[in-house]
Structures are given as structure tokens and as C-alpha cells.
């Protein structure tokens, strides 16, 4: 096994050049370094194949439709989380912002409340979500506090605001304005049913994949997460970028709130309890580095799908849902360990 590998890059180390070889494992490392979404994609394929084999009713068009619907809320939420984690930040409050926003949207549109038209209530929700994200960003950039601490604090604040504002009451299906339920509408594609909420989520993924890849703002998000000092010296206003990221993420959380209302056909202060951590799970399993500067938004979509596939597969196979937590927990550790290993690769 000597020297048939060619040096494809100019950054080839002299020793490697001298030895002129790369082990199979190193080659894998190099490939994964270039395409970080490959490993979650193969996990998704393998998991789907295993469940298709084990649980006979798993691999049906109907079930695949259900899986995409189950992914819609966390999938949307996790787009905002991806942006934040790319800047080497974290948002523990995203689920709380989403639930709070969903209550604001649902309640202000109620006849017994402000009786706003559905569209206006949604617009108000976007403003509230954006402001919540802006508040997180402001605390992080102006007070120079770590994102973990700021969002741990705002997690408590938004959770409590939700309970106080909702007065412990769920806005039920028949009380919801029709516009708010629009994202729960199913579209039947020959047995494969998806909802408008899923389409909105996919649209958002397309938009942010483009923005991160092809705009200056996208480059700046990566640069700030990669090395904030280098970004500052290159003339990027780091705090401005961070503030914009947290605000944009807040808008995305508000859209996730709309998807949530459509999905559960109600707005409850008690829904989405696990959403904060689930969104981080999707991002991490999707191959985005918690250290910032590395990752793709499409990986997050794959990560969110993996969680839904495991959940659905275990339940159809008749296994205890406790195994889901076990499996996802192990996947998180494996994903982060893999990230550490891949980061050491010389592409």
C-alpha cells in the first residue's frame, strides 16, 4: 500500500509527502472533513434500513409522512440553533421563546382577548420572537456574558412569562383563528402526507443554506465562530454579527411557534418542554461543531430526521421509548467525538 495516493492539496505535509501514503482511516477522515454532513446522512440511512427490517410497518409511505411531520417543529427551531452554534454560542432558551411566542400568537387572536386578525397576530409573534432573540444578543454582546449563562437565565424568564401570560390555560383548537392552523394542513401525495408546516420548514432550510453559503453575512457568521479575534482584525464588527444572528434566530423561533400551533392544533404553555435540548441534539447529531465555525444547515435537517426516525422506529417495533433516549444520548456522544476526530484531519 505505498504511494498510489496523490497529493491533491498544496498544504501537503513534507513527512506525508515523503511517506506518500495515507491509511484508509485517514482518507475517511479527510473525506468527512470536506463533507461533514456525510456521517449523519449515513446514520440516517442505516437507521432507516435497520427499522425497515425490524419493524414491518415502519417503511411505509404513511409512516414516512408522519416522520416528516414529527420533525417539523424541532427541525424549524434547530435552524436558529444552528446559526447560533456556528458562532460558537448556544441557545438554551429557544424552546421557551417558541412556546411563549405561540401563546402570544394564539391568545391575541382569541375573540375573548384582543381579537386580532390571524395574520396580524402572526406578525406580532414574529416581532416578539425577534425581540426575544435581540434581548439575548444584547445581553451577550453588551454585557459580555457567555451565551450559556444568558440563555439559561432567559430560559427561566420566558418559561415563567409563558405561564403567567397564559394563566395555565391552553388555547384549544376551536378557539384558534384559521390562519394559525394553516401550517397543520395536510397535503396528500399518494399516501405520503406532509403538511404545509413541513414545506415551510424545508423552505427555511433552503433559504439559510443559501444565505450561509453565498452571502457575506454567511461568511461572517462562520468567521466569527471560527476565530473572533481574527474576524475583528479583518475588520468584521463581531458584536454586530452576533446581535444579528441572535435576532434572526428569534424570528426563526417565532416561525417554529407557528409550525407548533399547526402541529398540535392548540397552543399550550406546557408543550415543547424538551424543545430546547432537542434542537441542540439535532444540530450536534447533524455534524455542526459546538466550538463554532464548522457545519452545514442541511446536517441539522438530517439530525432532526434521525431523532424522528429512531423515535418512530422504536415505537413501531414495540420497544419502550426509554430506548429512544438511550440511542439519542449515545448518538450525541458519538457525534461530538467524531467531530473532534474530524477536526484533526488535514484535508
Amino acid at each position: 500500500m505505498v504511494s498510489e495516493t496523490t497529493a491533491t492539496s498544496a498544504g501537503y505535509d513534507a513527512a506525508e509527502e515523503f511517506l506518500g501514503r495515507q491509511s484508509g482511516l485517514q482518507r475517511l477522515q479527510t473525506i468527512l472533513h470536506g463533507y461533514p454532513w456525510l456521517s449523519p446522512a449515513s446514520v440516517l440511512v442505516v437507521a432507516t434500513l435497520i427499522f425497515a427490517f425490524v419493524a414491518p410497518n415502519f417503511a411505509t409511505l404513511g409512516n414516512f409522512g408522519t416522520i416528516t411531520q414529527q420533525t417539523a417543529v424541532i427541525g424549524t427551531l434547530a435552524i436558529g440553533q444552528t446559526l447560533i452554534i456556528l458562532t460558537a454560542g448556544i441557545d438554551l432558551s429557544c424552546g421557551a421563546i417558541m412556546v411563549f411566542t405561540s401563546m402570544v400568537i394564539a391568545k391575541t387572536a382569541m375573540e375573548s382577548d384582543l381579537n386580532l386578525p390571524g395574520g396580524l397576530a402572526l406578525l406580532l409573534g414574529l416581532v416578539v420572537g425577534g425581540l426575544a432573540g435581540f434581548a439575548n444578543g444584547l445581553l451577550i454582546t453588551r454585557l459580555n456574558l457567555p451565551p450559556f449563562i444568558v440563555t439559561l437565565g432567559t430560559l427561566g424568564i420566558f418559561t415563567s412569562l409563558t405561564l403567567l401570560y397564559a394563566t395555565g390555560r391552553t388555547v384549544r383548537n376551536r378557539e384558534l383563528a384559521p390562519e394559525l392552523k394553516w401550517l397543520g394542513k395536510g397535503l396528500d401525495l399518494g399516501g405520503f402526507t406532509i403538511t404545509t408546516g413541513v414545506l415551510v420548514m424545508l423552505g427555511l432550510y433552503a433559504v439559510f443554506a443559501y444565505v450561509l453559503r453565498y452571502t457575506a453575512w454567511g461568511s461572517h457568521v462562520y468567521a466569527v465562530g471560527d476565530d473572533p479575534d481574527a474576524a475583528r482584525l479583518a475588520g468584521i464588527q463581531v458584536n454586530k454579527v452576533l446581535l444579528s444572528v441572535y435576532t434572526v434566530a428569534g424570528f426563526i423561533f417565532a416561525i417554529a411557534a407557528w409550525v407548533l400551533i399547526g402541529r398540535v392544533n392548540a397552543a399550550s404553555p406546557n408543550s415543547g418542554i424538551d424543545a430546547n435540548l432537542d434542537s441542540i441534539t439535532a444540530v450536534v447529531i447533524g455534524g455542526t461543531s459546538l466550538f463554532g465555525g464548522r457545519g452545514r444547515v442541511v446536517g441539522t435537517l438530517i439530525g432532526a430526521l434521525i431523532v424522528s426516525v429512531v423515535e418512530s422506529g422504536l415505537s413501531i417495533a414495540g420497544l419502550d421509548q426509554a430506548y429512544k433516549r438511550l440511542a439519542i444520548g449515545m448518538l450525541i456522544i458519538i457525534a461530538v467525538a467524531a467531530d473532534q476526530w474530524i477536526r484533526r484531519a488535514r484535508a
Binding site: 461568511s219 461572517h220 462562520y222 468567521a223 471560527d226 476565530d227 479575534d229 481574527a230 474576524a231 482584525l233 479583518a234 475588520g235 468584521i236 465555525g293 464548522r294
Partner: peptide, 15 residues
């Protein structure tokens, strides 16, 4: 003062 994860051209034109 360069960003390791970004490519050469992106680094040169950063900002």
C-alpha cells in the same frame, strides 16, 4: 489573523 475553517479567497476578502 486568519480564520482557519474558511478558504483562502474568503479570508482574503473577509469584511
Amino acid at each position: 489573523a486568519v480564520s482557519p475553517a474558511l478558504d483562502i479567497a474568503t479570508n482574503m476578502f473577509l469584511g
